[in-house]
């Protein structure tokens, strides 16, 4: 079963991904993403009933360290790469 994404679907995905696309890019990605999504259909032939998902391969569950204050990146270094700043703070356009 081949997947055919519509232009509207690709626009929606791009907006969710916070990517502004040109109309040429939209056309290209509509075709390519449809092909790639169809490529995944082969997984439907694998029986995965009662198979748990894997996200961690070494069996490690947690790693703990002592709950003590440690030096962290000083504020001026943490903010120095930002283009728009006010003092040692990041400056962001109004959210609301």
């Amino acid at each position: 079963m081949a997947t055919q994404l519509t232009k509207e679907q690709v626009e929606k995905i791009a907006e969710l991904a916070r990517l502004k696309l040109t109309s040429d890019e939209l056309d290209m990605y509509r075709i390519q993403l449809s092909e790639i999504m169809s490529f995944f259909d082969t997984l439907s032939e694998v029986n995965t009933a009662n198979i748990p998902p894997t996200a961690q391969t070494t069996g490690l569950v947690n790693r703990y360290f002592a709950d003590v204050a440690r030096p962290s990146l000083p504020q001026d270094r943490a903010t120095r790469e930002a283009r728009v700043k006010q003092g040692n703070y990041f400056k962001v356009k109004a959210v609301l």
Binding site: A14, L16, A17, R18, L19, K20, L21, E25, L33, M37
Partner: peptide, 26 residues
């Protein structure tokens, strides 16, 4: 702010990154 994100990321990432970000988002 939304435009800021869209434009920064739309021009900052190359074609393969955009492709992978969109597959993952979808």
């Amino acid at each position: 702010l939304l435009d800021y994100y869209l434009e920064t990321r739309g021009t900052g990432f190359g074609p393969e990154l955009k492709r992978r970000i969109m597959i993952g988002t979808h």
